[in-house]
Structures are given as structure tokens and as C-alpha cells.
Design a protein around this nucleic acid. Structure first.
Lengths: 256, 256
DNA sequence: ATTTATTGAGTCAATATGACACAATAGTAA
DNA sequence: TTACTATTGTGTCATATTGACTCAATAAAT
């Protein structure tokens, strides 16, 4: 069954997809006060890769990215941002797909559409960790969250792609609802601070971070406190969506 | 002669270029205290477009962008930054190329490689206005600088592409040598301020801008004054390249 | 009951910012 | 030569922001 899907795709994919263009999604989630990336493990078991795919002949590249995201996470309406196109001439998806082709005992040659050079367009997605049910596909064994700072060996330039995603996210931190999309409805100030620290790549002072975030007036403090951890129980907050998005228009921390 | 080049390109371009991918350069220059964009006018005379081109089968997309830039400006080693990929399914280069094909009286069909949908990758370039000698090509009549705020009618989504270039440039303003690449060796503080005002899209206070720029310690003040304009002659400055690039690493205006 | 790590709140000096003011001056007009 | 004008270099000052730091409160663990 799975084999049939893959066969069909390799033999007929060129009829419905654009040649030479692929999409790779860097899917970020937040758990245990750490940023995670959703990765696939190939059947070889030794290499991990970003969940990617191709673009339909009449499909917007943004739609393609959303479709691919949905396959992996089951989620609709997810924040998705294109950030860079990667176009080294060595970008050829040979390893994975060649094995697949060989295992099919099909005839194929170097001209096979899936063995050509691909320019890949990177998107980063911000998802709420708890809502995701990772979903492997026909050429992958595993689909799992990986710590950003403990990434396994990755296919091709996928390591570079993740780094670039982080860099671009850093630039847009004050203009996009990054905390909003990564966190659940209710969260602690420390949760939010951890996200900022990871994206900015440096530690922030707790008190000052607190003061600054609250000064934007974009969060509502709940009566409830977080319970479960040791030590003093922190307040829970949620974003005031209306004020948050209003503030993002001109950029957090930027003056009118 | 020109006809032959174009013919050759349309008939054989698919052999040496990647299918379905193009490059469009937004080339910025600075003159008369205004930002300008270098545009091409098609033979139809009514539509302008960004200077673009295709990617060689073994060429890095960055190299392709640099090659295309060189053809237009004659310049090497120019600051060039990829900023976005545009992939609506309606992106078909029909108008211009169809006319060219028709005028050749060659047989062609809807499957012609140049009439397929293209995903275009946008780069912005920052060039020193005075060093550029605009250079039209075989399918263009004119190649000229246009004011950013008085753009003529543009092909396809090229207007959107220019806007996006500006937006992305705004985000990177503190991390890229934007003034350095747009200005000549010596310039006035007002020149620099005009660039910032255009990119940020708002007026800045003269005195405060002055104070802030000088506080970075990245500019050397010359003994000479600018002469030519009426009124008090301003100082000339030049960037201290070493300090400038050092400061950009952590971002202008950002703390350590 | 005591310990412990963490939280909420606050202090305070140093720095940055925004909004102005004002004298100096290069070319222009008289 | 002189007055005029628009622009420049520099400075002021009240206010806002920042970074570094305290300290009492407190929830869970011992």
C-alpha cells in the first residue's frame, strides 16, 4: 500500500508538480521551555530531514507549504512564513529517492525528474506543541520533535535551513505573533521569556523582561496560578489577541 | 543580431537553464536625495519591468542574480540580498515573450518552456548610482532609473516585488551596510538621513538622527565641506569600513 | 517546621529619546 | 557691500527606557 503510493509518486509526480522546486518546512514547537523542530527520519535510519514536498502545477507555493504542513501535523490555519530559497547547484535529492527507486526495481535514469537539482523554498511554521500529532509518511520511519540545540545529523543543507529560519525569525520577532502561535492559551511569563531567549540567542534579565512585556499591554493576567512545578507558583497569562495584533502592526517595542 | 540572440535564447534556453525558475533584481540607487529603482521598458513601450533572468543548470541562484546584475549595471562585487520567492500560479511571462515568439514567425505552442509558470526569486541590490551605466538588452528598449514614489505601470507582480524588497530591507537596516553601498565615498549626513527616511517610511528629526549616527562611531568626518548647494555647507563624511562592519555584526543600535 | 528555588515587585543610577532652540554660515538677492 | 534665507552644527532639557540589582512572598520538598 505505502509502496504503491510512493511508486505512483515517483513515476507520475512530474505530471502534477512543478519541476525543480521543492518546499521545506521548519516546524517549530515549544515544550519544556525549549524550542523544538519537527523532523522526519528516513528509512535508512541514519539521516533526519525536514518535512518537505513539491508544488502542484496550479498551486501557490504558500498553499503547497500549508498542505505539506497539514500532512505532518494534522493542523489547519497555522502561522507559516516563507523565509528563504536555497539554490546551491548541489541540491539533489539523490540519496533518499535513489534508494526508493532502486528498491522498486524499476528502470530509471539520471534524467528522472526526482533526481534533478531542486531549488527549495523554506517556510517556518509555529505550532502549538500539544495540538500536534506527528504523522510519518511512506518514505519515513519516524516523525518526531527534536531539540534545537541537540539536532541529529541532517540531510543535505537542512541544518543550514534551520539556522536561517531562526535568524529570519529573530528579525521578525517584533512584527509577528510568535509567542502567540507557539504557546497554549495560558502560559507563564517564563515560558514566553524562554522563547525570546532561544530566538535571540542570549539570556534576558527576568525582571526587565517582565516589565517590558507587561508595558506593551497585550497580555491579560489570569487569577489562576500555574501549579505543578516546585517553588512559588507563577501567574498565568494569555494574549489579548486584539491588542496584540494591533501592537504588532507597528512593531513591539517600536514607537509610533 | 539582437534578433538572433533572442531567437537563440527562446529556442534553446531550456537546454541550459532551470525550468520554471527565474530571478528578478530590484536594483536600488540613490540620487538627488531619493531612492531609485533601475527598470527596463519592454519593446511595447507601455510596460516596465524588473531586470530579470534565468538560472543556469549548474549555477547557484546567487550567482545567477549577480550575473544578471552585471549585465544591467556593468558592476561586479555588488551587495545583493535575496529577500523573497514569488510563487502565485498566475506568474506566467506570457505577454512579453509571446510577442517575441510571434514576431519571429516561429511555430510554438503552449508547452514552450518560456511560457510556463515561473516561480521568481527576488534579490535586492544596492549600487552606487554614479557608477552605473544602464544597459538595455535585446528585448528591452530602455533601461532607466525610476523614482520609488513615482513608479510607472509594471509587469505582472513587479510592483509587489519592489514593495516587498523595501519591507525586507527595512528589517535588515541595522544589520546590513545599506548606507555604505548606496552612497559614494563621501556624503553628507542629510544624504544618509534621506535613505533612512525612505526605507523607514517616515521623517526623522535631523538633530537626533545626527547624534545617533555619530554615536555609533562608524563615520569619519572630513575636513572638506560639501559645496554646490545654497545655504550653509554641510560636512562630508565617509564610513570607517572596519568599525562599520564590526558594528553591523551585532546590529546598529543594538546593545552588546 | 524548615529548607529551597523561584516569583512578583520595586529601586536607582545611567543612558537614550523626542522635541526644541539658537547661533553660524554659504549662496542669493538687493 | 549688505541684508536675506534656508540649512547646518550644536546644545538643552524634560521624560522614558534600560540594566543591574534587592527583597519579601510562597509552593513544594524534606
Amino acid at each position: 500500500m505505502k509502496r504503491t503510493l510512493l511508486e505512483n509518486f515517483l513515476l507520475h509526480g512530474h505530471e502534477s508538480n512543478l519541476p525543480g522546486i521543492s518546499i521545506d518546512n521548519v516546524i517549530f514547537g515549544f515544550h519544556d521551555n525549549q524550542l523544538k523542530v519537527l523532523l522526519l527520519q528516513s528509512q535508512d535510519k541514519d539521516v533526519w530531514m525536514l518535512p518537505g514536498g513539491f508544488v502542484g502545477k496550479r498551486e501557490h507555493i504558500d498553499e503547497a507549504a500549508a498542505r505539506i504542513l497539514k500532512v505532518r501535523t494534522g493542523l489547519d490555519d497555522i502561522f507559516l512564513q516563507q523565509f528563504y530559497a536555497f539554490g546551491q547547484p548541489q541540491r539533489i535529492k539523490n540519496k533518499i529517492l535513489m534508494k526508493a527507486l532502486q528498491s522498486m526495481n524499476k528502470k530509471y535514469d539520471k534524467e528522472h525528474w526526482a533526481l534533478q537539482r531542486f531549488v527549495t523554498i523554506g517556510y517556518y511554521a509555529l505550532v502549538e506543541f500539544a495540538k500536534v500529532n506527528p504523522h510519518p509518511d511512506e518514505i519515513s520511519l519516524t516523525c518526531a520533535w527534536q531539540d534545537l540545540d541537540k539536532l541529529p545529523e541532517l540531510l543535505l543543507d537542512h541544518h543550514e535551513i534551520i539556522q536561517k529560519a531562526l535568524e529570519e525569525m529573530r528579525l521578525k520577532l517584533n512584527y509577528q505573533p510568535i509567542g502567540y502561535n507557539l504557546l497554549p492559551e495560558e502560559f507563564t511569563m517564563k515560558n514566553l521569556q524562554s522563547i525570546y531567549e532561544t530566538i535571540l540567542g542570549r539570556k534576558l534579565d527576568r525582571g526587565n523582561f517582565n516589565r517590558k512585556m507587561l508595558s506593551y499591554g497585550i497580555m491579560d493576567r489570569k487569577e489562576k496560578h500555574y501549579s505543578g512545578g516546585a517553588h512559588k507558583a507563577p501567574y498565568l497569562y494569555s494574549f489579548n489577541k486584539k491588542k496584540y495584533f494591533k501592537a504588532l502592526e507597528s512593531g513591539l517595542g517600536r514607537d509610533l
